[in-house]
C-alpha cells in the first residue's frame, strides 16, 4: 500500500509531541514531592512500629533443596480381558478399604524385650536382694539389715555337710560379735542329736570366726545395742 508524504510528516509530529508531554509530566511529579517536604521535620521511622523479640523476627531461611528429578507417573496399563479357568483366575482387584491405623506409639518399634546391653560402671559392692538365700538382704523383697544379712551369708558359705549323712536335726549355734566386727566367742547352744550335723555347725561357726577375725567388718552403730547379746542361728540342712 502506498503512503503519502503528508501522512509521514503527521506521524512524526504526533510522536514527538507525545514524547514531550510524557517528559513534562514525569518532571512535574518529581518536583512536587520535593516541594511538599521542604518545610517539615523528618518523622521518626520507628514511631509506628511495634517492638518484637529479635529472635522471633529473624527470618527463617528456606532450606536449599537439591535439584529434584521430575518423575512422571506411568501410564495406567489396561489388563487384557479374556477367558480364564477357575484355577487361573486372579482375585478381583478391589479398591482398598480404608483401614484405621492402630493407636500405637511410633517409638514402640525400637523397644526390645530384653536389655542385653553390657553393664557399664562399677558393679555394686553388694548385690541388692538375697542372692545368698538370706532374708536379710536390702532389696525391697528382702528388706532387712545388710550387716546381719552379710553375716548370715558368710555363715552359709562356711557350712558344708556331706550328702551321704542324715539331714535330720536342727542344731542352734550362736556367736558373740564385738563392735569392731571380730567374733569374740561362739558356741553350739543346742545339739540336734545328730552328732555329724552338730559337728558340721561347729565347723561352720569356727570358719566364720576365722573369716570375720581375718577381715573384720565393724558393726554399724545402730546394731551395736543388739550385738551386745548373742546372735543365734537355727540351722536346717534343707527345707
Amino acid at each position: 500500500m502506498a503512503v503519502s508524504s503528508e501522512d509521514q510528516t503527521m506521524h512524526i509530529v504526533s510522536g514527538i509531541g507525545t514524547f514531550v508531554i510524557a517528559v513534562l509530566m514525569v518532571g512535574l511529579v518529581v518536583k512536587s514531592a520535593d516541594w511538599a517536604g521542604a518545610d517539615t521535620k523528618p518523622r521518626d521511622r520507628f514511631e509506628d512500629m511495634e517492638v518484637i523479640d529479635a529472635a522471633l523476627a529473624e527470618l527463617v531461611k528456606k532450606p536449599q533443596q537439591q535439584p529434584q528429578k521430575k518423575f512422571k507417573a506411568p501410564d495406567p496399563t489396561v489388563k487384557p480381558q479374556g477367558v480364564t479357568r477357575d484355577d487361573q483366575a486372579k482375585p478381583v482387584d478391589r479398591p482398598d478399604e480404608p483401614v484405621a491405623k492402630p493407636d500405637v506409639n511410633p517409638l514402640d518399634k525400637f523397644d526390645r524385650p530384653d536389655n542385653d546391653d553390657e553393664p557399664v560402671g562399677k558393679p555394686d559392692e553388694q548385690p541388692v536382694g538375697a542372692f545368698d538365700g538370706s532374708e536379710f538382704g536390702f532389696g525391697d523383697e528382702t528388706r532387712g539389715d545388710p550387716f546381719l544379712g552379710a553375716l548370715k551369708a558368710d555363715l552359709l558359705r562356711s557350712w558344708e555337710y556331706p550328702e551321704i549323712l542324715s539331714d535330720v536335726g536342727t542344731p542352734v549355734g550362736c556367736i558373740h560379735i564385738e563392735p569392731d566386727g571380730t567374733i569374740e566367742a561362739w558356741e553350739l547352744r543346742e545339739k540336734s542329736g545328730n552328732a555329724e550335723l552338730d559337728d558340721s555347725v561347729e565347723r561352720a561357726l569356727r570358719d566364720l570366726e576365722k573369716l570375720r577375725d581375718g577381715e573384720p567388718k565393724p558393726v554399724p552403730a545402730h546394731l551395736i545395742p543388739k550385738t551386745r547379746k548373742w546372735i543365734c542361728y537355727r540351722m536346717k540342712v534343707k527345707e
Binding site: 546381719l148 558344708e160 542352734v172 550362736c174 537355727r234 540351722m235
Partner: peptide, 24 residues
Amino acid sequence: GMGVAAADDGVIIDVTGAKRGKYP
C-alpha cells in the same frame, strides 16, 4: 515374721541350706 526370734539373751535367726558335697 522375718525369720528372727528373740532368745533369752539375744536373737535367733533361721538358716537353711547347707552345701552338700562329698564326705571328707
